[in-house]
Design a protein around this nucleic acid. Structure first.
Lengths: 216, 216
DNA sequence: AATTGTACTAAAAACATAAAATGGTCGAAA
DNA sequence: TTTCGACCATTTTATGTTTTTAGTACAATT
């Protein structure tokens, strides 16, 4: 039992989303609407995005949108949740591709740091909005952070059992890693203009960060 | 030349501030006004703090305030700058009390993490204000972060020369340390209610963080 | 000469209200 | 099953008015 069963279900769902051939038509249109809405929400935030905007951008009438979604709030929540879901799934895929704990950790961090961009854009756009929507995002993140700490703890534990890592308290260490990643998000987001640069920078940073800031 | 001359001047200024016996009366009143204003700004932000509030809280008339300060903006800026100045000075004092690079670094981080509380309160109160004041704070911090990276780099370099640290690129490492500290600010601020707890937590975190997350 | 209180003004914030835009519904049509 | 146009209640915004506040001038006080 490497990762919780729940996570594997999410993973399946992700793969289904990526090669969306098996999607039934209704879901397909839902996904289209969500994609379009995500784009607009990320650009203008919650309030300045109107249902008419979403309808126009999808080339449909407003009532059609209401056929697929209960209300604006539902669209918003699904957009945010999907963003997190996709990232999490990508991370799980990347982890599963590696066997060595050290490589697993590295893959996790790389994918997470690069993949969070979309979510952070959305997050940023929400800052000028009603508190409740920002808070929804924040709560979702906090919940996700906890899961992420758990995932990383598993990797660390494996590494400790392996003899590769020597860590006193893997819970605290996992917590520190996640917190540090959050701290690195913003500067990375800012300097993300030339995409080629990022990878190098990030890689270098991670080397310094996780393979010994100070070596005794 | 351990730290820049400029820093030592700031250090002197700080010591002068702390045992404020040598202060000429005018400066003393200025400092009182600044202290009071800092309190109010931290609580209500920039806009909701009125000059009459500051005057009333200091027990003086409004024109007296204008005798000591050009305008509200000047008070605000001095409050913010002083907050940063005091923190920086405290850090320099703490560093100078240690000789071993490792202890210097530890002292730096401890003082900085614990001392930032006031500034963060101010920072937080400003979030509902005009962007310009928030940005002023942010710019000041960014500028200060750069200085801090420099200070830490010096410590790291000393440790490398010493043979105590083995670091490829001390600039990047210093940058990572500062960034990580910024990332840890918020969670620490939240859990800062019982003061005794913080110290223990922080210490444990730092041990994990800087004395080897992963040990080869 | 340094400091403070009173009275004042121009600008900005807070408020109230009318006009426009928006979330959401309904029944008909495709 | 899905789309559409017309519609309503509510919210947002635009507007004009009143109140508050930053900053000044100057006499009074120390």
């Amino acid at each position: 039992m490497l990762y919780a069963l729940k996570d594997l279900v999410i993973l399946d769902r992700f793969i289904q989303l990526v090669d969306n051939k098996e999607m039934i038509p209704k879901d397909e249109i839902r996904e289209t609407i969500l994609a379009v809405a995500s784009e607009i929400f990320s650009r203008y935030g919650y309030q300045k995005t109107t249902m008419d905007d979403i309808a126009r951008a999808t080339g449909k009438g407003k009532s059609s949108i209401y056929y697929y979604f209960k209300n604006k709030e539902e669209i918003f929540r699904e957009v945010v949740e999907k963003e997190v879901l996709v990232l999490k799934s990508k991370i799980l895929v990347a982890i599963n591709a590696q066997t060595d704990p050290r490589e697993k950790l590295k893959a996790h961090i790389l994918v997470r740091m690069k993949g969070l961009k979309n979510f952070l854009n959305l997050y940023n756009a929400l800052k000028n909005d009603f508190l409740s929507h920002f808070e929804f995002c924040e709560q979702l993140r906090t919940r996700y952070d906890k899961e992420e700490i758990g995932i990383i703890k598993e990797i660390l534990d494996a590494g400790v059992k392996n003899g590769e890592f020597q860590i006193d308290d893997t819970s605290v260490t996992a917590m520190v890693i996640v917190t540090a990643m959050k701290g690195l998000e913003i500067p990375l987001l800012i300097e993300t203009n030339p995409d080629t640069h990022v990878e190098i920078r990030l890689d270098k940073l991670l080397d310094v960060f996780f393979y010994g800031i100070l070596i005794r």
